[in-house]
Design a protein around this nucleic acid. Sequence first.
DNA 1: GATGAATGAGAGTTCATTCAT
DNA 2: TATGAATGAACTCTCATTCAT
Lengths: 183, 183, 183, 183
Amino acid sequence: MRSDARANRDRVLAAAEEVFGESGNAGSTEEVARRAGVGIGTVFRHFPTKRALVKATIVRHLTLLAETARARGEGGEAGAAFRETFREMVSGAPAKLTLVALLEEPADSTGSADEVEAAATMVREAVEELLSRGQQAGEVRADATVDEVYMLIRALANARGDRTVVDRAVDIVLDGLSPRRSE
Amino acid sequence: MRSDARANRDRVLAAAEEVFGESGNAGSTEEVARRAGVGIGTVFRHFPTKRALVKATIVRHLTLLAETARARGEGGEAGAAFRETFREMVSGAPAKLTLVALLEEPADSTGSADEVEAAATMVREAVEELLSRGQQAGEVRADATVDEVYMLIRALANARGDRTVVDRAVDIVLDGLSPRRSE
Amino acid sequence: MRSDARANRDRVLAAAEEVFGESGNAGSTEEVARRAGVGIGTVFRHFPTKRALVKATIVRHLTLLAETARARGEGGEAGAAFRETFREMVSGAPAKLTLVALLEEPADSTGSADEVEAAATMVREAVEELLSRGQQAGEVRADATVDEVYMLIRALANARGDRTVVDRAVDIVLDGLSPRRSE
Amino acid sequence: MRSDARANRDRVLAAAEEVFGESGNAGSTEEVARRAGVGIGTVFRHFPTKRALVKATIVRHLTLLAETARARGEGGEAGAAFRETFREMVSGAPAKLTLVALLEEPADSTGSADEVEAAATMVREAVEELLSRGQQAGEVRADATVDEVYMLIRALANARGDRTVVDRAVDIVLDGLSPRRSE
DNA sequence: GATGAATGAGAGTTCATTCAT
DNA sequence: TATGAATGAACTCTCATTCAT
């Protein structure tokens, strides 16, 4: 019976990612339950609060993201790895950072953002790793810090618009991140 | 009493900009009324629908923005004008584009988005003007189009975070928008 | 300036008859003001309450009705006068009793229904006069009382439906009111 | 819990019949909830719209009415059956047609009036059946059609007033519906 | 006296959350 | 443990009524 519960939890999380991804915080818990194919009670049994559900969704998201980024970082060419991960984080399907915007909406003063923050930190660290390798290889400008890079990724991930326009915007930003002439 | 009414209308719009700027579409009309210091009925007298209020808020926003951008464009040095306006649009107080995100949320299929669209077009055109002047002056890379530039502005305007980090991120983007070595 | 006021009062009453005739009690005071071409304040200056306005409308209505009925009663043939007035009250344009239904909706426990009651009594008396003349002339069954006749008029006046159906229904009722075989 | 739900649904409908019977469309959904002893949310769970609640109430009403009329029609004497049913429809407790007036108020242009219309047709057909049997038995005037009869029933059912007066009014109408002398 | 802007109680409706089954 | 019915606070919107001009 434990495995049933876990399976349900996962289905709920997947549904939540769909729903909140589409409608943001305005997505309803009942819609999540419906798409997960469970009763509303089940959702609340696993996540005592809508907020908790949103957080868990984000954590799942960020964890996936960090793993992907880290895996990518293992590869050989540091510059390419950095740039590809940047691109993927901005527009990659399973890696979309969009959901994070949910957390930015309400002033997160509950103090219980820890879990999310931990996951976010993992992503940041993965980005940092990629960034410093790129810099050491001389393929990324030396004066860029994780802060800016991470912010740029998040900003672009949240932007809506034509895929091609996003791609060109990313090109520009990556150009901005390439080593300066004088370097 | 016409003047009173207009004053109230303005206070409502200002309050709406605050509220929707903070909480997005989830901000409540009642909160707007409270901050404006008027009764809920007054808000609805001026804007028959929440949607109408949101739209009016955005239009006001965009209009201001377009005016600022255009004024800035009159100045002499094309490159500096472009860059300063870019910065201002991203972080300028009365010019923040954040609200535009509201429009991206609901599928605006009412067909009555005309006014908003018109205002948005004005902003785009102002940006376009600045961009092409900058390009003609050889201070902005020639292959950039309004689409990307406008998207970058919006993406960064919506990003939350330290002011200084935003500034550095803008630096990077502007570097990306400067003429390429080979040019 | 007195005559202006009276003129406004009359326009308001006429508008009220239109509006409440169409939409019943659900008609709004503002709609009345709009159709009367006056401000909402003017309506409330003349009638301190919506209820008061409704009542005044009904009184005007009933007064007109009573006058028409009485005028009709002066004529020669008692039976024809009775039947024609009956018909007119049911479907006559300026004489429609429909509005009375408004009063029947809320339990009229304000105790201030006096004015309306007085007007209603005038109508009743006019009907009574016509009825008894008809009975004396042997053209209306002797055992009918005003109560039933008045109720039948009101019931039919409130009925919605094809004009021709109403007419045929009235025929049937008038047949029921004609002298019995044995009389 | 299905049975609880059904029980609540029924209580809501019963309360709705009371409330709308008293105050017409102006009766509030909250009052219905209060009288049913349930929360407002429960009312809306069962009937997604006030309109839907009103409709369901009417349908229930009409269905009951049609059944009663049809049961009555089975009896032997056609004339008596017709007259008794007429009386019952006008003043019978569980059979009062009053609610139908609700339908006459708003221009029912939603196109979804089907269910109500179907129920209304059933009532009409029951009346028609009784009428034609009465006519074949020579106990009801031959030239009367359902249209008038149905309208008379509705008109009298909606009339307010002393029970005895209503009864006498019905007597008159039934006299009008009896076979003409010459027949 | 007339005007119409402001008010706020109240109505319909939604949705996070609880709880009986 | 899962279910989904019940709950009620909160939200958008309406309208009778008041009041400054």
